[in-house]
Nucleic acid binder design. Structure first.
Lengths: 261, 261
DNA sequence: GGATAAACTGCCAGTTACTGGCATAATACC
DNA sequence: GGTATTATGCCAGTAACTGGCAGTTTATCC
């Protein structure tokens, strides 16, 4: 067992249990969902109601302050049932992000590689976002805002991001036929792809914070794409190559760094 | 309050409490510690005993399986006291990494920037590692091995790494006199520095896994340095630029990716 | 050296996330 | 309409963590 990449069983609901491994949030169905067995539709409804209610309550009352009992009382399911849908309080809070990660992973999975890898990964992200429902962007923005002010969710977010990255690298290994342990660049590509996603998303949040979130989807894609494209230029960053005049002089204490050993 | 960067109060022991924010593991004293007030030395001893014992017990009996009561019984302190030294079970397990992060951050803090930033960050890492005690490399290797097989610790690790990155970027902003929101490259530099650290460390662990961990310190520095230097080459990765002949043919299911929208 | 102040420690009782087991109820299948 | 499947609820339990207070140890001041 090389690692513990997220499982991703069929979809939603009662399934595996493990304590804190990668979440398995999925929800791949959007339009096809009317053609589902009645029971499945009910489960899906519960699952969404849990995520939506949780997000709303956490935003209003705070993540730590809002107890799981509060949530399940509101949704009117038992605690035990909650844990058959989500494996932790963090997971239900970050459900929207879980959907994105799943979509991204499955875009990369269907990818056939020719040409430079990094732009391909950028396009996969765009396709993934476009594949999500119209309501998604709003939920995701709210989710990330909540996470920004909640330490436990920031940690959880970092964890799922790392998991996703591991999955991407693994898939790229297969597709390119190389072992990431032999070619340094492969794993670094994974790092940089996720770095771009993180950074682009941060800019997106800031942009949408002021103007209302009209069409978040396209803005998000633009920002993340911009981050991807900025990578080569970032490598050579030095004081001399800065655009804007930097304020010289006071370096905040600490003289030039003396050698340690 | 822009974010919740780790506090890093003086050193060790009973102090702040918050639930899950950035850890504050420090232990900056090594040789000077004999010249400490008696009480401080005692605290330091307890703190180290907790970390060492925890690491040993977790490695032998598993992180989840070993309970906090087991630990405090062995060390012979009360549970309440434990939480005055470490703010979570995860933190005590990853204490060695906490020390590294603190050392890295303080190296960067004393940095005066001239020339390309990335090589400077690479050297800071080297200096930080060299500044840690001789025992440290062994503890760190054990810590990371434990984390590799423990989901909760992988998540925690991802969290602290993100926190460190945020701190680095913040410090670079100050030193360069730019706002990372205005210059994309600044934050991406942070992403890539941490990416190199992560990746280099991974290689180090693999290298030291086979041959015993003779002098881990220098090997670690070498591997991380190598990862830093490989960054520019990684950006252009494409099937054509791969060194080794890639196995063609079977792309594991999934035909060429059809456009989604 | 002894008294006062400060800091560290232990105990207790409580909250909350999370889990296994089993009985019950709802749905699918025939 | 009867039966197998599967989701749900309840119960009791564990383990991480926290606040409060009392007791003890160390620093400080005289």
């Amino acid at each position: 067992m090389p690692s513990l990449a997220p499982v991703g069983n069929g979809f939603s609901g009662p399934g595996a249990h493990r304590r804190y491994a990668g979440p398995m949030t999925v929800e791949p169905l959007r339009n096809e969902e009317s053609a589902l067995p009645l029971r499945e539709r009910k489960k899906l409804r519960t699952r969404r109601l849990l995520a939506d209610t949780a997000l709303r309550m956490f935003l209003e009352g705070g993540f730590e302050e809002t107890t799981l009992d509060d949530l399940v009382d509101t949704v009117e399911v038992s605690v035990r049932t909650f844990f058959r849908y989500y494996s932790s309080k963090e997971e239900v809070a970050m459900a929207a992000e879980g959907e994105l990660w799943e979509a991204y992973a499955s875009e990369v999975a269907r990818l056939r590689i020719s040409g430079p890898v990094l732009p391909l990964l950028r396009d996969c992200y765009a396709d993934a976002v476009r594949g999500l429902s119209g309501d998604w962007a709003r939920r995701y923005l709210a989710t990330r805002k909540l996470a920004a002010r909640t330490p436990a969710l920031r940690v959880y977010h970092a964890g799922t991001t790392q998991d996703l990255q591991a999955r991407l690298v693994e898939m790229l290994e297969d597709k390119l036929g190389v072992d990431s342990r032999e070619d340094v660049r492969l794993r670094l590509i994974g790092e940089m792809a996720l770095a771009s996603v993180r950074y682009g998303t941060k800019n997106w949040m800031r942009a949408l914070g002021h103007r209302g979130g009209a069409d978040g989807t396209e803005t998000l894609i633009t920002e993340v794409g911009r981050a991807f494209d900025a990578l080569p230029g970032a490598l050579s960053l030095s004081p001399d190559t800065l655009d804007r005049p930097r304020r010289h002089g006071d370096q905040k204490g600490a003289p030039t760094r003396p050698p340690r050993g």
